[in-house]
Nucleic acid binder design. Sequence first.
RNA 1: GGCCCUAUCGUCUAACGGUUAGGACAGAGCCUUCUCAAGGCUUAAAUCGCGGUUCGAUUCCGCGUAGGGUCACCA
Length: 452
Amino acid sequence: MSATKVITRFPPSPTGFMHIGRARTALFNYIFSKQNKGEMVFRFEDTDTERSKKEFQTDIIESLQWLGISYDTGPFWQSQRTDIYKKYLLKMIDTGFAYVSKEDPTEADKIEGRTRTEVIRFKNPNKIITFTDLIRGEITFDTTDLKDFIIARSVNEPLYHLAVVVDDFEMGTTHIIRGEDGISNTPRQILIQEAIGATRPMYAHLPLILAKDKSKLSGRHGAVSVKEYREKGYLPEALINYLALLGWNPGTEQEIFSLDELIREFKIERINKSGAIFNEEKLQWVNKEYIKKIPLAEQTKLLTQWAPKLDSLDVNTLVKLTPLVFERISTLGEISQMEKDGDFSYLQSTPSYTFDALLWKGKATPEETAGYLSKIIEILCLISEKTFDKNTVKEAIWTYVESVGRGQVLWPMRYALSGLEKSPDPFILTELLGKKETLNRLNYARDILIKK
RNA sequence: GGCCCUAUCGUCUAACGGUUAGGACAGAGCCUUCUCAAGGCUUAAAUCGCGGUUCGAUUCCGCGUAGGGUCACCA
C-alpha cells in the first residue's frame, strides 16, 4: 500500500448538459476514491469562455446531486486560476520548454478582425512516451507526430492541456480516470508534466458508451443527458447501477448494486476494454427492480406526483391503486402516460361504452350477459358495505362464476366497472369503487344490454 | 489517411490454456389467467478470418478484416 492518499477528479467543461457518459466517468472516479479512502476533486474546465455557460454548470451540479455523487474538494473554476497557469507558462518559457511563436492569423482571426499573431507553443522533445493504463496495460506513442503543439493563446489565456496538467499536479491528482477518448491526449499531457516537474499520475481509460450504431453517443442519438432520464422517471439509483454495469461487472451473477455495494465490490482492473452500447431496455429493467423496492407509502406519493389528477381521490383508494400501477410500470414517466391514456379514468367518472364491448369474445349474447350481471348484482347486494372487499366479493361470486364460465361473467363485470379493454381484475375494481358505485355500474351495464 | 484502442449470442457480459461456451436484457413458446400486467417454466441465439505456439486455444503471438477514438489558437 502506498502512503499517498488517492485523489481522483471530475473535471467537466460546462459546455453542455451532463450526459450519461460523463455521469459514468464521475461515478467511477467517485467509487474509486471512496473505496480507497481517498478524495474526489471537482473542477470546471471553463477556459473556453466562448462556449462555457452558467446554465450547464448548474445542470452538472444538479445532476451530480441527484445521482448521489458527492465530491470532497471544489468546485474549482479554471477561469479563476489564470494566475497559476501564467506562473507555469512563464517558467516554461524561461526554461525553454515553451516559446512564444509568431503565427499567421487564422481564418477565424481574419473574419473576426483580430490581429493577434502570437501563441505559446510547447517545445516538443520528440520522444517516445510509454505509460501504463490500469485497464489497457502499456500504451506507447511517438510524440514527434504532435509537433510543437499550442498550450496557450497567451500567458493569460491557457488552453486545455496546460490547464489540466497544472491543475492535476497542484491538486495532487493520483489517478486520472476518464473516457477512452482521452488516450490520445495523454502523451501531450505527460510531456507537459515532465516539463513542469510534475509526477505522473496513474491512468485508467474507460471504454466509451456507444449509441446503437456503435458511434460515440451524442445528442443526435436521442436522450443522452442525465436530466432527460430524470424527467422520464428513472431513479438515480437505477441509472447509477446500470451505468456501473456498462463496462464493469463483479464476475458474479449479481446485477443489482447499491452505491455502497459498488464501492465495496468494484475492482478497477475488472473494467472492460471495449465500448458498450447504451441499451435503454436494460436500463428499464434495472429501474423496475428499484421501483419494486420502494415502500408503499413512498410509491403512493410518487403516484400522485406523476399523475396529479389522481390527487382528487381519497387516500384509501390511492393506497389500493398504488400496487396496481407499480406492477405495470418500469419508469415513473409511465404513470403520467397512463393518466394521459385514460387508464385511471374509471376512478374519476362513470365509464361509457356500447353494449357489444360487454360481450365476452363476442360469443355470449346480450341476453345471457345481462343475466350474468343480474345474478352478480343479486349476490353483491347481500354483502354488507363494511365487508365489501376483493376477497369477500370473490368468495361470494366464485361458485357462480365457475358454474357458467369465468370469461362469460368476469369480462362483462370488469368491463362494466372500468370501461377499459385492459384494467386490473374485477375484484380489486369492486373494492376500489365501493359497493354503491359497483352496483351502479353493474346496473347501468345490464340496462344497456337489456335495452339492446 | 497517420497514430492509438478494441473484437464472445441482437444488446450488456462470464469463462487459472481443458466447460455441453454460463448469466442478464430483449425475443419466441408454454403455464397461470376474464383483459393488461406480474410470476413460473422452456427455448432460440455467440467465440470476426487466416496462420502459428501447444497434447489442447474464446483465452497466448503474428497478419488480415471490421469497428471505434484522436489528429483545433475545443475540452
